[in-house]
Write a protein that binds this DNA or RNA. Structure first.
Length: 191
DNA sequence: CGTGTTTGACCTGCGC
DNA sequence: GCGCAGGTCAAACACG
């Protein structure tokens, strides 16, 4: 694919990990440490800074502390506590693209001002608190807006495969060794 | 039987 | 304080 370099929640370049064949990536946002606010209204990048409205500082790692008590999500708060939000819009008939991670759907909600429901997913990897929301663009249902929240504390199950395909087995060795810093793109991206 | 999805109920923050 | 809206839980269900 020839889309822009999209940083993914792991800090790598998303295009390397997402099978975007059949998708047209039209826009993306990196929302770091803040809240996307009215994401749907801003993903088309014609409005003010998307970090605006992020006066809320980063909440604690509530999710990891959660038991079954009153610790609940707050509207617009980043419960995953990772500080990374990535939102992007793709033109696709499919709502969920294969990004290499395994997601478990945990909720579905119809939202105001949008005829399309919003779907909520959690990374099904144990201990990983990354979430994503998927909804269709209210203005153009042919577009899908995906918002990732948080940073995976593990590697993509498909990452090895992708690296193997593109870089060769020596790269696989680096990745699988755990010596790779997920917050920094592999060196081979620098050039 | 294990895993994932569906869906209604519940909780919380915010605006009025 | 109340109602609304968004986000999550969890039981029931479906499927391989």
């Amino acid at each position: 694919m020839n889309g822009p370099e999209v940083p993914n929640p792991n800090g790598t370049y998303f295009e390397e990990m997402v099978d975007l064949s059949g998708f047209e990536l039209s826009d993306y946002l990196l929302l770091e440490g803040g809240f996307e606010g009215d994401l749907l209204a801003k993903t088309t990048a014609n409005s003010e800074d998307n970090s605006a409205g992020s006066s809320n500082e980063f909440p604690r790692h509530e999710a990891s502390e959660r038991t079954n008590s009153n610790i609940r999500s707050k509207r617009g708060k980043n419960k995953s506590g990772t500080g990374i939000r990535v939102a992007f819009r793709t033109k696709s008939e499919l709502e969920v693209m294969d990004d290499g991670f395994k997601w478990r759907k945990y909720g579905k909600k119809s939202v105001k001002n949008s005829p399309n429901p919003r779907n909520y997913y959690k990374c099904s990897s144990g201990g990983c608190l990354v979430k994503k929301r998927v909804e269709r663009d209210r203005d153009d249902s042919s577009y899908v807006i995906t918002t990732y929240e948080g940073v995976h504390n593990h590697e993509s199950p498909c990452l090895v495969y992708y690296n193997y395909k593109q870089m060769g087995p020596e790269v696989v060795d680096v990745v699988s060794s755990g010596g790779w810093d997920p917050q920094a793109p592999p060196s081979h991206y620098s050039g």
